[in-house]
Amino acid sequence: MDRELYGREAVLDDGGLVARLCGLTRHGGSRVAYEHGDDPPVTVFTGGRGTGKTALLKEVRNRYRGYTPLALLDCAHVEPPADHGPGWTPLTGALSELAVQFSPKVLGARPVRFPRLSLGLVAVAAIGWSREDDERARRDLQRLGPLLATVDATRGAAAHWVGKVLAKLAATFAETAAPLAGVLAEATVETVLEEVFGRMQRSAEGWYGNYRNAGGRGKAGLQQLANDFEQGGRRRGEAEAFLVGALTEDLFHAYTGLRRGTRVGRPLLLLDNAHEPLGRQLVEPILRARAAEGRRDRLVVLAASRVRDHEALRQATRTRLPETAHRAPCPRGTSVGSGILAVELTPLSPAQTRAAFDRYDPAGRTPAALAPAVHRLTGGRPL
């Protein structure tokens, strides 16, 4: 059932902002012309507590789930798994979770597969493993099972490939007393490719030939990725940004090579609390690839930020929610941040605050003065 949003519905109307960005009306009812062609802006809804940002993102999810691939992530609450290895960070954990959410079959289209992202996360998971710690390696690999199941639901979810990876690692440790992260990554990747990837081996591995110092060689790129990830600092940031690119590349390929009309609309990435560091780690690589490389990834990013004046929004095009009902121009400049459309959620009116009370108190038991008082005390932000 659709949720009452008290004035925020305009963004979800059949001709509203979300429909014009993703090309579909709610519940996949019909197609809508793309307002921004093949280069949609990253849309950030801004406003303090109580403005309904989270409710808005959840309602987008509710209305479009099952009709276009989508994922919703709270950037403030990505919980680390127990006793994880050094290959887990909030960013790698978030990417794995997002891919699993994006993957399910939607109306008229097959599930989305994530071979490139899976391979990269397998490579970085291997860093820090030791001969004496095969149980941690087993747990790290098993946690990647749901992600690898997006590549092959039968082989990815099966446990036998984990045992084969561990056997390969044992042989690697026997040959080298203290193997480097890149060597461990290569041993792990080789086995996973053989056991899970099937015909997607070449395209998944080949994509990493674009990584720095790889020279077009996928295996070399994966080794370098693992080494950079282990190094930390700026190099880890580069590796993580490349993994974000792997996610968007896998999504892009889900929309190419299919017969016309099989997949409509665009995928939706919904990020709550995007003002947190994780939000920037996810969004900035997408913006940079669009600005610097001209990448057209077809991904619609809708984010929520409690910090209206966040430094990442300095070059954004700013507008207010009511102004986006029919069009929302976002002229591009040369800066990365010019690819952001910042939409301020305006306060509720006194009548909308009253309607919120009436919805939950249809019998009118609350004092008549309560709704006006709440509106006054919250500045129209009671949600």
Rank of each mutant, 00 (worst) to 15 (best):
M1S: 11
D2A: 10
R3L: 09
E4R: 14
R8K: 15
E9C: 12
L12F: 07
D14C: 12
G15D: 15
A19G: 06
L21D: 04
C22S: 12
G23Y: 05
T25A: 15
R26D: 04
H27W: 13
G28H: 00
G29S: 14
S30G: 11
V32D: 10
G37A: 07
P41V: 00
P41C: 07
T43L: 05
K53C: 10
A55P: 06
G66E: 08
G66M: 13
T68W: 03
L70N: 12
A76D: 10
H77V: 08
P81Q: 05
A82F: 01
A82C: 01
H84P: 01
P86E: 02
T89S: 10
T92K: 09
A94Q: 02
L95C: 00
S103F: 13
V106T: 15
V106M: 03
G108C: 00
R116I: 15
V124Y: 12
S130F: 02
R131V: 10
R136G: 15
R138I: 07
L141S: 08
L141W: 11
K164M: 13
L166K: 09
F173T: 06
T176H: 10
P179M: 06
G182M: 02
L184S: 07
L193A: 11
E194I: 01
E195T: 14
V196I: 15
Q201N: 12
S203T: 13
G215W: 12
G218M: 10
K219D: 14
Q223A: 13
L225A: 09
G237V: 00
G237Q: 01
E238M: 11
E240L: 08
G245N: 07
T248M: 13
R263P: 08
L271E: 06
L271S: 13
L278C: 00
L287W: 02
A289Y: 09
A291S: 11
R308A: 11
R314K: 14
R314G: 00
A316I: 03
T319C: 03
P329K: 07
C330N: 15
T334Y: 06
S335C: 02
G337C: 04
I340F: 00
E344C: 00
L345W: 04
T353L: 05
R359K: 11
R359H: 13
P362E: 01
P372F: 00
L377R: 12
G379L: 06
L383I: 05
